[in-house]
Nucleic acid binder design. Structure first.
Length: 397
DNA sequence: TCTGGGGTCCTAGGACCC
DNA sequence: TCTGGGGTCCTAGGACCC
């Protein structure tokens, strides 16, 4: 029995939200991302309006390059909380059409509307209704793809952006995909595309025409999966969002750092941020990963299992500092540090009670952390901060 | 003019146990 | 002193996605 799957993808999401909230920016090139600092800024473009794209600006472009291409654009820092709010409104609209809804990121989702056909009409009618509702109720534009599999629906939604709507009828998937470049295959990035092009494979159709097993010889087990996608064979179900497996924070220094004390201070800030997010979501970290990138862009990670799961900044910080000694970094300047909580468990699950015995004062530390969280929620993040973070450099927001 | 920050998944190799 | 194979868990790095 053939399924009907929609992929809904918001167009230029962050930039569109900014233009929605600031009418004076409508019709203008808008770039959301790092501070360009007149061309000397570090970081990349997170999102940009279609007006900005006419200058050659794209997502993930270094912000310094964006500045060169269009110094007159409107440059804005991301406002994640606002985007999350609009995202929720989008998902509420999508939820009217099916409960088989799988969020893929903050601004896109799969919908299995196989059973909804009779109620709302065919895929063309449902897709149109969703686009209209998003436009009418939120003032935003979505692109939609419809097909009998997730992969083909996703490719379809991307094909005529912005404001695209492409329906691939059942049985037409292979023909629809054949002329497209291999880079469109989900899981083929720059590296894999390069390997494939070296053996003369340029289009999805060329991959689909291989014999079974040919691609495995080249790419290992992932090869068979890609071969099936190329033929339009994808029976993965649309399923609700999975539990998060990790939760982290990282930051790139404005200038490379030599001072170990500044590295440590930043780790404390990151550990506090991660711990706060853990507490807010009722999670504890059973493990910890430290990430450190040198000025040479070589990145190292070191991981550890914590003696007991925690949601306290102090404990994450202590773990991170211990890992610092295992990273080969002291000879070179540091570009980036990060702290990621892993092995997440729900608060109260497992051995939580043992904390009181194993970590004297842990209970009181948590009480303090919660009290500070409440102040932060009421008066804004950063209202209360550690003395260790108040100094020659302001804490980053 | 270099290359963010949030994630997921896969792989290879080593430790350890039976 | 030499000899297996299998299974599981863990880590570090890397590819990929938005």
């Amino acid at each position: 029995m053939s399924r009907t799957i929609l992929h809904v993808d918001m167009d230029a999401f962050y930039a569109s939200v900014e233009q929605l909230d600031r009418p004076e920016h409508r019709g203008r090139p808008v770039v959301v991302g790092a501070d360009p600092k007149e061309g000397r800024g570090r970081g990349v473009v997170a999102a940009c309006s279609y007006e900005a794209r006419t200058f050659g600006i794209r997502s993930a472009l270094p912000i310094s390059q964006a500045w060169r291409l269009c110094p007159g654009a409107v440059y804005l820092r991301p406002r994640p909380r606002r985007y999350a709010e609009v995202s929720e409104a989008v998902f509420r609209i999508l939820g009217r059409y099916t409960d088989r809804l799988e969020p893929l990121s903050i601004d896109e989702a799969f919908l299995d509307v196989t059973g909804s056909d009779r109620l709302f009409g065919g895929p063309a009618a449902i897709g149109q209704a969703i686009k209209e509702a998003v436009r009418r109720e939120l003032g935003l534009v979505a692109s939609v793809g419809a097909a009998d599999s997730k992969f083909v629906a996703k490719v379809a939604s991307d094909l005529e952006k912005p404001d695209g709507f492409v329906v691939v009828p059942p049985g037409r998937a292979a023909a629809f995909l054949a002329p497209l470049p291999i880079r469109r295959l989900w899981g083929v990035g720059p590296r894999t595309a390069e390997r494939l092009s070296r053996v003369g494979l340029r289009t999805i159709g060329e991959v689909a025409a291989l014999r079974p097993g040919d691609l495995e010889g080249l790419l290992g087990e992932a090869g068979e999966h890609l071969w099936r996608l190329a033929r339009g064979e994808d029976d993965r179900p649309v399923e609700g969002g999975a539990e998060a497996k990790s939760l982290g924070a990282e930051t790139t220094f404005e200038e490379d750092v030599f001072d170990p004390e500044e590295v440590r201070r930043t780790l404390l800030e990151l550990a506090d941020r991660v711990a706060w997010r853990l507490r807010r979501r009722g999670l504890r970290a059973g493990g910890l990963t430290l990430k450190l990138r040198g000025a040479d862009f070589v990145t190292h990670t070191r991981a550890a299992v914590l003696p007991l799961p925690t949601d306290l900044g102090e404990e994450l910080f202590r773990g991170a500092v211990a890992l610092l000694d295992r990273v080969p970094w002291r000879s070179k300047p540091v570009r980036l540090v990060g702290v990621t909580a892993t092995r997440l468990t729900a608060e109260g699950a497992g051995a939580g009670q043992l904390d009181l015995f194993a970590a004297p004062g842990g209970g009181r530390q948590r009480e303090l952390a919660r009290a500070l969280d409440a102040l932060g929620e009421r008066f804004g993040a950063g209202t209360v901060t550690r003395a260790a973070l108040v100094g020659d450099r302001p804490a980053k927001g």
